[in-house]
C-alpha cells in the first residue's frame, strides 16, 4: 500500500492504495466518482478519459501511485455549480449521445482538443475533430452529432478565456 495525494476537481484527496491501482479505480472505487467510465480492458475505447495536469489521458492506463501530487479533473468537475460546461451544453443541444456510456470520455477529450487548438492557433476543422476523436469509441451515435457538438462548443469556448476547470 502506498499513500497517494491528488487534487481531484479542485479538492485534495489522500488514500492508501495498492501500487497496482489504476487511476480509473482510484476515482471510481476510492472517491466514488463514477462518471469516469471503463469500457474496455485494452486502452482503446476512451470512455475513461480525464485530465491530468491539464492533458487528456486514459485513466485506465495510468497508475494512481504515479500521479502523487497531480491535478486531476473528471467529468464531475467541469460544470460551474448548476451551470454546465459549454461542451456539456453542446452535447445536449446537438443530441451528441444516446446511451451516454462514451459521453464522459467524449466530453473530456472534446475540451482537451479545443483548448489545445486554441493555444496553438490552429483551426479545429471537422476533419481535425474526427482525427482527434480516434481514441474515443461510440457504439450508438455514428459520431456525426458528437462532431457537431464539439464544433459548436469550440466556437463558444473560443470566445471565453481558458476553461475555468483547468
Amino acid at each position: 500500500m502506498t499513500k497517494v495525494t491528488m487534487t481531484v476537481n479542485g479538492r485534495p484527496q489522500t488514500r492508501d492504495v495498492p501500487d497496482t491501482t489504476l487511476l480509473s479505480d482510484f476515482l471510481r472505487e476510492e472517491l466514488r466518482l463514477t462518471g469516469t467510465h471503463v469500457g474496455c480492458d485494452t486502452s482503446q475505447c476512451g470512455a475513461c478519459v480525464v485530465h491530468v495536469d491539464g492533458r487528456a489521458v486514459k485513466a485506465c492506463t495510468a497508475l494512481a501511485v504515479a500521479l502523487d501530487g497531480a491535478e486531476v479533473t473528471t467529468i464531475e468537475g467541469i460544470a460551474q455549480g448548476k451551470e454546465l460546461h459549454p461542451m456539456q451544453t453542446a452535447f445536449n443541444d446537438h443530441h451528441g449521445l444516446q446511451c451516454g456510456f462514451c459521453t464522459p470520455g467524449m466530453i473530456m477529450t472534446g475540451i482537451d482538443m479545443v483548448e489545445r487548438y486554441k493555444a496553438s492557433g490552429l483551426p479545429l476543422t471537422e476533419e481535425a475533430i474526427r482525427h482527434e476523436l480516434e481514441g474515443n469509441i461510440c457504439r450508438c451515435t455514428g459520431y456525426h452529432n458528437i462532431v457537431r457538438a464539439i464544433e459548436d462548443a469550440a466556437q463558444k469556448m473560443q470566445a471565453a478565456p481558458a476553461a475555468a476547470a483547468e
Binding site: S43, G46, V49, R55, A56, V57, K58, T61, A62, T109, D112, M113, R116, E132, E134, G135, N136
Partner: peptide, 9 residues
C-alpha cells in the same frame, strides 16, 4: 501515433 491520450503519455 495512436490517439491524443496515448500521445500525452
Amino acid at each position: 501515433i495512436g490517439d491524443p491520450a496515448v500521445r500525452h503519455m
